[in-house]
Amino acid sequence: MGYESSVPLFWRLIKPRYQLIGNKCTTCGNTFYPPKFLCPICRKEGKLEEIKLGKTGKILTFSIVRSAPTGFEKETPYPVAIIELDDGPRLTSQIVDWKEEDLQIGRKVEACFRRIYTDGKEGIINYGLKFRPI
């Protein structure tokens, strides 16, 4: 789970997490997601600009979590994957609305908005993007 019950920790990442907002270095042209605070290639010569990434991509690798961390127990088993977005960057998330045959390297997926986990019954609900086969 995300670090327990920290509202600001969740809140400050709402925009990139909900909308796939990454950034692009205008010096080297590389696109980053999750967004960077410094272009790791150009460093001080780099200049980062916000960019909204497309929702589609493909599975590079995957697994199915059967022994879950705190906060995810009720969802097991759930597939997780590293996804390469069609716009370039790679990210990690869950695969939803899946059938056995969807879990394949190369499978096309698109982002969808889902609950990620909740901080117990009284805490906030953490949302974000998961990916479904298309």
Binding site: M1, S63, I64, V65, S67, E75, L91, T92, I116
Partner: peptide, 16 residues
């Protein structure tokens, strides 16, 4: 922020 948040575990990272 970008792995644990989504329910990843170490076994699943190495499994990938």
């Amino acid at each position: 922020e970008w792995e644990a948040y989504y329910g990843l575990t170490f076994p699943s990272l190495y499994a990938m």
